[in-house]
Design a protein around this nucleic acid. Structure first.
Length: 513
RNA sequence: GGUCCGUUCGUCUAGGGGUUAGGACGUAUCCCUUUCACGGAUAAAACACGGGUUCGAUUCCCGUACGGACUACCA
């Protein structure tokens, strides 16, 4: 019998959650669901200097939007709370002291200046990696070098101090990673990491291990940037005597910039021409705005599908997966090892795919909203017609409004290239006749088919081949050289408007031969 | 610099000692069509390099190159 799977997503609220973090959350969610386990959210806010108001809410809203809300979180606590590390502050010191007592950690009183001096000294002495470790700690001010009395005195007098892990000099730390298999690191390359900061807060390393243990986390699925500190974490589990319940690790490959030059970072924002955040975000300090996938028009299903495939695949040739299907197909073993470049073109393709299968009512509502925002109203009927007209040609919901501008506004000028190429005597003759026919037929039921029939009979009467002048007709009515089915456009516009536009075109384009 | 991780079409990837190295996005061409798109079809396009091991390596091993992460009292 195996323990219930419990995984966590543990972001720090230092700004907008970025897309890589969202993928990490997604993989955690998928794994939890697949295994019938629990997905928790823990806020890692141990760095008080980096707290950003609104970031927590942003994380919550992002996960909700994606449909991967946690089973336990600060807003929906389970039995192992609190789920915010700042609220667990009181407990960490005891664990750190436990380590000191066991001889696996020690007090250090060095000031920032002294640490800096030490690094400079080591650099000058050509030490390749200046660090606070089993060798250098003998020359620093800590409870290993100071007399017990002085340590006591300093602590009593309120001298600022940190607690550092005391790492073994020579030891091979070996641990298993679900994605990378065995990873071997020599402890001599590790340094005595700070566990408790002088402000009384734990560092990530301590808080993470303590909380994962207390919260019963069975699998740690996180970004590859944590791989180098994983040996430290393994050592901490050992120091605490928790090795038998140590979670399994899975370090995810990173999301890289499209040009492969470094990892995709928050700072990339809109510089690349696409969002790197799930939702719009305004930095409360700088006022800097970053756009989100949601507001850009990406559907959660599409983003989910896209993100899942960035570093994972089901092993067969299917590409389209709903969240439920992802859960069903997911396995950590099928996550790749190498970094993944972020290709927005694929995300767009997914979006187009999901947009085409979106239900009509949602799209109508969204189009009506866009119209309203632009200061006009669209009837249900007309909006529906526009959706049907453009459905197979748009990428984002907002495109229904953008790409239908020619329907809402008569052209004031005309694509000159098309005009030069296609505007000719045949066209004007036909348009003249068609306008008259339309005007005389006002009130008659008018739809795509009848508009077409009328155009065809008009052309025939004038002895003009319709195919030769269609683009000119389009130009006259829309001002554009390309677009959706013209007869359906006519149906939406209505005979009166079409005739009016034709007359305007005839007048405006008269000078062009 | 050091430590660790990685490397299959432009991109995401499948595969795995003997394959015509498969799919998807993107690109191109053709078909459909009143244009553009959609859809359908087709095409170009990859095992980083050098050594081993082997009858045989893209696949296993070792180097090299390249890329990435980490190297804080940040997470």
């Amino acid at each position: 019998m195996t323990k219930e799977v419990r995984v966590r997503f543990a972001p720090s609220p230092t700004g907008a959650l970025h897309i890589g973090g969202l993928r990490t959350a997604l993989y955690n969610y998928l794994f939890a669901r697949k295994m019938g386990g629990k997905f928790l959210l823990r806020i890692e806010d141990t760095d008080q200097t980096r707290f950003v108001p609104g970031a927590e809410e942003y994380i919550q809203e992002s996960l909700e939007w994606m449909g991967i809300s946690p089973d336990e979180s600060p807003w929906n606590p389970g039995e192992v709370g609190p789920y915010r590390q700042s609220e667990r502050k009181a407990s960490y010191m005891n664990y750190a002291l436990d380590l000191v007592e066991k001889g696996h950690a020690y007090y250090a009183f060095d000031t920032a200046e002294e640490l800096e001096a030490m690094r400079e000294r080591l650099t000058a002495a050509r030490v390749v990696q200046p660090q606070y470790n089993s060798i250098t700690r003998t020359q620093m001010k800590n409870s290993l070098t100071l007399s017990p009395e002085e340590v006591k005195e300093r602590l009593a007098s309120g001298d600022p101090y940190v607690i550092r892990a005391k790492l073994p000099l020579k030891e091979e730390v070996r641990f298993h990673d679900l994605i990378r298999d065995w990873v071997l690191v020599h402890s001599s390359t590790l340094d005595d990491k700070v566990l408790m900061k002088s402000d009384g807060m734990p560092t990530y390393h301590l808080a993470n291990i303590v909380d994962d243990h207390l919260m019963g986390i069975t699998h740690v699925i996180r970004g590859e940037e944590w791989l180098p500190s994983a040996p430290l974490h393994v050592l901490l589990y050992r120091f605490f005597g928790w090795e038998d319940t140590m979670p399994q690790f899975a370090h995810l490959p990173l999301l890289l910039k499209p040009d492969g030059n470094g990892k995709l970072s928050k700072r990339d924002g809109d510089k690349l021409g696409f969002p790197v955040f799930p939702l719009n975000w305004i930095d409360p300090f700088t006022g800097e705005k970053s756009s989100g996938f949601r507001e850009t028009g990406y559907l959660p299903d599409a983003l989910l599908n896209f993100l899942a495939f960035l570093g994972w695949n089901p092993g067969d040739e299917r590409e389209i997966f709903s969240l439920e299907e992802l859960v069903e197909a997911f396995s950590i073993e099928r996550i790749g090892k190498s970094g993944t470049k972020f290709d927005i073109a694929k995300a767009k393709w997914y979006n187009e795919h999901y947009l085409r299968s979106r239900n009509q009512e949602d799209l109508i509502a969204s189009l009506q909203q866009d119209a309203q925002a632009a200061g006009t109203t669209l009837s249900q009927e007309k909006a529906g017609a526009i959706i049907s007209l453009l459905r197979d040609r748009v990428t984002f919901p907002g495109d229904f409004w953008k790409d239908s501008q020619f329907l809402h506004q008569a052209p004031s000028d005309f694509d000159s290239e098309v005009a030069a190429k296609k505007w000719n005597a045949d066209a004007t003759t036909l348009l003249q006749a068609y306008a008259i026919a339309l005007e005389s037929g006002i009130g008659v039921p008018f739809d795509g088919a009848s508009a077409k029939a009328l155009l065809e009979s008009t052309a025939e009467a004038s002895g003009i081949k319709l195919g030769k002048v269609m683009q000119a007709v389009r130009l006259a009515v829309t001002g554009l050289g390309a677009g959706p089915d013209l007869m359906e456009v006519f149906a939406i516009l209505g005979p009166q408007e079409v005739a009016k536009r034709i007359r305007f075109a005839l007048k405006t384009l008269a000078t062009v031969d």
